[in-house]
Design a protein around this nucleic acid. Sequence first.
DNA 1: TTTATACATACCGCCGGACGGTATTTAAAA
DNA 2: TTTTAAATACCGTCCGGCGGTATGTATAAA
Lengths: 232, 232
Amino acid sequence: MDTDGKHTAGGEGAVARNKHPEETVQLILDVAFRLFMEKGYERTSIQDIIDRLGGLSKGAIYHHFKSKDDILMAVTDRMTAQSNQMLADIRDCGNLSGREKLKRIFKESISRPVQNDIFTVAPNFHDNPKLLFSLLHDTIDEVAPNYILPIIRQGIADGTIETEYPEQLAELILLAANVWMNPMIFDSSVEESCRKFMVFGQMLRGFGLDIVDDEMLKRLRELTAIYQEARS
Amino acid sequence: MDTDGKHTAGGEGAVARNKHPEETVQLILDVAFRLFMEKGYERTSIQDIIDRLGGLSKGAIYHHFKSKDDILMAVTDRMTAQSNQMLADIRDCGNLSGREKLKRIFKESISRPVQNDIFTVAPNFHDNPKLLFSLLHDTIDEVAPNYILPIIRQGIADGTIETEYPEQLAELILLAANVWMNPMIFDSSVEESCRKFMVFGQMLRGFGLDIVDDEMLKRLRELTAIYQEARS
DNA sequence: TTTATACATACCGCCGGACGGTATTTAAAA
DNA sequence: TTTTAAATACCGTCCGGCGGTATGTATAAA
């Protein structure tokens, strides 16, 4: 009976160890993620997290994570994980040119915005420098070399991309797409977002790429509209 | 006698108010700037600042600044002030085309790197998210619309720049130049910096601009070499 | 029974900041 | 010119809360 542990909510007896500690870890991460998004990393105290944990204590947190920064890293890892999965799938897809892969990536990231979760909490990335920075360096240090670079190399090989410096192009593209055009970082109106996208497209044309089409623009319009609504 | 106040260094009598409080403000800013650069904003405590102030107390700081964040803002303002002055000079220079103005800006920022001061403290912008963010938003919200945008508009008018969206192009250029190519933010080897610059040049060519020349590349090499040395 | 795990609790040092007090300068009144 | 009231520049102390640690304890696995 009650083989599935859980921390017995109201029992007078001591609440003791959970048989499935990973659930606790996920719970902490869930709570921390929401709080970091809602209030910002710096303004979220450990006590804030504890208060929303439903009975768990500070000891529990510091048993599973060695510091507040450690929690932040785990949170960002979880945030990027599924996005990275998508990138890996496209990267390893056999029968696509470099240009087609890049185009598909942009389409995917527009249609499924990192995680629908994110939009339910109305995140403010500005005034959340540490969280943003964590994602920024992940973008440059992990995503660019591991996911975009191979695609660009392929694009050079199959003639759809023109550059002598694939590593740097990968970084530049990601910085523009993931940071500059990210409505969660630089909040733009729908019009501004579309203009950014047009400029982005012109920039890519300078590297031989042509990936902008009307369908993408339409999706982008919808997305930014939804996001703006969520923030109001 | 002693009309110039200063806090009497060793006198047994009380140390009292300075007749020139602006000097005190500048002193606080000097100390804070160095500490923020050396240790990062977050790891610099008010006490750290006090300790280097030479007798001034916490009350003095909180008399002139209303919070630690307020100090940060003042520090970044002072950092960008002289850089902005240079931008304004070039922007308002009469007999130059848009392209020539942009080119001159890049040359200037390469030859006089924000402030020589910065290099004497071996700053680490990574792991200093708040300071970086402060500069980042200043770049997008102030520098882009007030300094670069007018130049780009002029470039469109005189035919040296091709784009339908000058506001967005201004942002993109600054993001690439001031953030991505900034060795203090993304530490790159000399080789990497030059490659970034080449990619940057190719990007600009997509907008009709051609500003890369050998002289700039040479200067860039020297600059990043110096910077790397300062960090080792 | 022992050992490792999954927590709870109590505690610590430090931090940003508020505040009351005080000496000095400034400005106006006399 | 002197007197005086107000504003300024700073000092010293105190506080709640913060991130983090040390220790204790009940349970699961061995």
